[in-house]
Amino acid sequence: MAVAQGADVRLSDTVPGWKRRLARAARYEDLSLVLFFALVVGFFLIFEPSAREPRIYPDLLRDTSPHLLTGIGMTLLLLAGQLDLSVGAMLALTGVVTVDVFNRTDNMWLGIIAGLLTGPIVGAIHGYLVTVQGMDSLMTTLGSMFTIRGLVYVYTDKAPITDENGFKSFNKLWNGDIGPLPVPGVIAIVLIALAYILLTRTEFGRNIYAIGGNKQAARVSGIPVRRITFTLFVISGTLAALSGLLIASQTSTGYFDAGVQGFELIVIASVVLGGVSLAGGEGRLISAMIGVLILGMTGKGLRLMNVHTTQQLVVTGVLMLMAVYYHRMRKQLVLRSRDWT
C-alpha cells in the first residue's frame, strides 16, 4: 500500500491488459448480471436436456412475472431507503377482492378494478403512516403483512373463493400470448421500461436516488421527500396488486394463502441479488430484474432436474451467496481500477 501511494504511473503499468479490460467491462453492472444469468442458463442447458426446449423460456417469463412486477416497486422503494414487506399478503388480498367482486357482481371489469384498487389504497395507507406519521417502514409493513393476511383469513375463513362465472378472458391475462411472449411477461416488460425511463430520465428518478443516498441532504436541497416516498408506496402497492391479479387469473380463485411461502423475501432477495443495496440509494432497475430471473431460472432448472427440496434449499442459498459476493468483487474491481488510469 505504502509503495503504491505516489507511484501511480508505475502501478498502472504493472496491471496486465486483460485485467484492465475486465475492469472496464465490470463497470457495466447490467452486463455482468446478464453474464451471471447466462452462466446459470448455460449450466442447465448442459446438464438437463429438457432445459433445451425453447418453450421453457417464455414460461420462465410467465412464472416470474409476479416477482418482476413486485420487484419493480420493491427496487424503487429500496432505492429511496424504504421497504415493503406486505407484498406477499397483497397477493392474497387482491385475489380475494377480485374474485369476490366477480361473484357478487357477475362483472369481470368491476372485479379487476376493485382488485387493482386495493394496491393504491394499501400503498397510500403505508405512505401516510411512513411519511406523515413518521413510522418506520419495515415495522409498519411487517405489521400490515400480518394484518392483511389475517383479515383475509377472517374474511374467507381459509376457504379459496372460486370464480363462479369462469371468466375465460380473465384467464387470458395469465395464459394468453402476444406473439411469442406471454401476456404477463409483456405487461412486466412494458412496466419495467416505464419504470426505467422514470428512474433514469426524469427528475423524479434522480430524486429517488438522492433520498436513498442521504435523506437529510435531499430534504435540505428542497426535494419533496415526503411526496416522493408516498408516491413510491402507492406504486409498490399497485404493482403488488397487479401481481395478485395475475395469480388470481392463473388460479381462477381468490386464494387466501397466495404468496404465503415468503413471496416478499424472495422478491427482496432477488433484487438484492441484482445489486440493489438494502441501505438505499444504490442499485439499478435492470440488474434487479435480472436478479429476479436468476432466482426464477434456478428454481425452474432444479425442478427440471428433479432435484429434491432438500438440495434445492441448499443450492438456492449457496447461489444467493455467490451472486452477492460476485457483485462485491465486481464493485471492488471497479473501485480499484480507478487508481490504474
Binding site: T162, N171, Q250, T251, S252, T253, Y255
Partner: peptide
C-alpha cells in the same frame, strides 16, 4: 398444494 387454485391449470 391447494385444490381449487390448482384446478384451472
Amino acid at each position: 398444494v391447494q385444490e381449487e387454485p390448482s384446478a384451472a391449470t
